[in-house]
């Protein structure tokens, strides 16, 4: 039976470990925000009437904020991951260069 990726993936295990750890942390942060939203809706729906920002109530503000937060966190996560991948690639390139010189 065949196994393995359709396209060969040669990723530094250190990069994978870093991204997994970072991803789980970001997930935990967003999970708390989402859980807070669901809990307020469920157990304190009247609170959602309160005006919060630009004439919008908490329900709309929190809802829009969850969507925008998802986008912003995604972009930050990508920036961190790309930076780490570039660093590790540069290190690997430097290592292979010094090996060639020897």
């Amino acid at each position: 039976m065949e196994h393995g990726p359709a396209v060969e993936v040669n990723e530094d295990p250190a990069a994978s470990a870093y991204k997994t750890k970072l991803g789980l942390r970001f997930f935990a942060v967003y999970g708390v925000l989402f859980a807070g939203f669901v809990l307020i809706n469920t157990f304190a729906p009247q609170l959602m009437k309160v005006k919060v920002l630009l004439g919008l109530n908490l329900a709309v503000t929190y809802g829009f904020a969850l969507i925008l937060t998802a986008i912003i966190m995604g972009l930050i996560y990508n920036a961190f991951c790309t930076k780490k991948e570039d660093e590790l690639e540069a290190l690997a390139a430097a290592g292979s260069d010094s090996g060639e010189k020897k």
Partner: peptide, 25 residues
Amino acid sequence: SIGYLAGWIVALFVIAEPLKRLGKF
């Protein structure tokens, strides 16, 4: 809308890359 979108956070932070490293079709 909020529930459908929030689900993508799970996909991005937890599933996307590990699955890509493992899977085939």
